[in-house]
Simulated scan of single mutants.
Amino acid sequence: MPKTAMLLQFPRKFPADEIEQHVADAATARALVTARRPDLLALLQQRRERISKVPQWQLHDASEVERGENTLLIAFCRLAFRHGSWGTDFHAYHNEEHILEILGTRIDCLLDHIGVNGLQLRDWYLLSLFAAGHDLRQREKPQFVAGVGSNEQASIEETFRILQICGFDDSTALALYKSMALMIAGSTFDARPAPNDLEYNSAELAQSGGALAQRLDRKLDDHLPDWRSDEDLQHALPLALLAADLDTANVAAPFPVFAASAERLCREREMRSHRCLQDESSAAPVLAFLTDGQERYFFDLHRFHSEIGRATFEAAKQENAARLQAQTMALRARIAMQGMPKTGDGVIAIYREVVAGIA
């Protein structure tokens, strides 16, 4: 593990698990994706053709580009097995589809807005690796150091191992490691579980506060006071802000897509809270999440932190503001007239009808 790239000294390590052993190399990952998700290979080919217009592209040989793509394939497969549709611990939001949301549509929006030359070639790769690696771990025992959560720290360490597997040695690619450490750390949401919580409920935190990225400079001042003389970290900080914006840009998606992402997050939250959506105990928290929780997050808590993120996504977010208000008002009104559904599933059924009427 490249200690020089570890920006904070976490009190414990997060070693490789069975999933890492199951998808241990690029050949395994590429075979799995070829068989199960060829659409990811098509996306990478389309992205390669588009990014090849960056001037620095000619300085990189085909093998280096392939190694970069291999890191994405390994991370994708591991998340699909660990918390996605290929495994037994399915998370409705933090799964392989979330990788594709960022890697595909959101980075495409970024490319459309700033152009392929708006960032360096390495930065486009880092944003792609962030998409694939920042949510690799979702089941770590809650712990925070300088605002960085245990899930994020575990994801950083696993991403480092993926880089090493694919031939990116920290002695020659240290800037990649430091950038990824900062970017994934910055994706930590700042609300913490109550002290007696046994789980780190990422779905709960995602609606509870802003990303750590907005305070990374102050955290670095406190814990790594010489960081401003490090050119790699100076370059990585704006990328960390942009990565956090990509992570939360569902608020700027077309309203049906945004609403569907809220439902998935709600489903994961209930699962992580050990409430079954077919039980009466889930009805009230589901309604609260899809009304008060959505309004509070969208209007009070969420911000785009980078200039590029604001320029790319803010206008589309504002277009969703009136639709979200209409959705929450209509959902409350329907339930006031019809009575409270008996289960969370019942609330979600009405929510879907309301969203369809607005979209």
Rank of each mutant, 00 (worst) to 15 (best):
E295L: 14
D279L: 13
M180Y: 01
Y125D: 08
A311Q: 15
D197N: 12
G118Y: 02
G87L: 04
T312H: 03
F255G: 10
F258S: 10
E152Y: 10
L129V: 13
S155E: 01
L198Q: 13
K342M: 13
G210M: 11
S63E: 10
H302A: 11
A252N: 06
A326P: 14
M337E: 15
I348S: 03
P142N: 07
P38L: 06
L110K: 01
Q46H: 00
V347G: 09
E204V: 13
I348C: 01
S52V: 02
A5F: 05
S85Y: 00
T159C: 01
T159R: 00
F90H: 11
S208Q: 05
L32P: 11
L8K: 12
K53C: 11
D221G: 07
D232M: 10
W227I: 09
L8S: 10
R161F: 00
A211K: 09
L72R: 10
L331T: 01
A146H: 06
F299S: 06
D25M: 00
D279A: 15
R296N: 15
L182G: 12
T328P: 10
L301K: 08
A283H: 07
E263T: 05
F313Q: 03
L72Q: 13
R48G: 05
L73C: 05
M6T: 14
I165C: 01
A175G: 10
S202I: 09
R50Y: 00
A181S: 15
A283P: 07
R215S: 10
I19R: 08
H83W: 04
R122E: 14
A240Q: 04
A322W: 10
A260Y: 12
G133T: 03
L126T: 08
H60G: 12
D123E: 03
T188R: 01
R275M: 07
E101R: 12
A175M: 15
E20H: 07
Q338G: 09
P341M: 02
A194Q: 06
V65Y: 05
F160I: 00
E66T: 07
Q338P: 08
V148C: 09
Q138V: 13
I156D: 01
Q9C: 15
S85P: 00
F255E: 04
D135L: 05
D89M: 11
D169R: 00
A62S: 13
F168L: 00
R161N: 00
Q45S: 14
L205S: 12
V257R: 07
C276N: 08
V54P: 03
A173Q: 11
L41V: 06
R275E: 04
S281A: 11
H94D: 03
A356G: 13
A31C: 14
K141P: 11
E295T: 13
A194H: 12
E140S: 06
K178Q: 06
A62V: 14
D123A: 00
Q234F: 09
I107R: 01
E295R: 14
A154G: 08
E295W: 05
S187E: 03
P11K: 06
L103Y: 03
L220T: 08
T312A: 02
D39K: 08
L242I: 05
Q327V: 09
G87M: 05
Y125N: 06
F81E: 15
H113L: 01
A26R: 04
Q46M: 03
L72Y: 07
G133L: 04
D61C: 07
A284Q: 10
L40T: 02
A330W: 06
L239Q: 02
I165Y: 00
R269G: 11
S52R: 06
G210V: 12
A321R: 07
T291G: 14
A336I: 13
F255T: 07
L290N: 07
S150P: 02
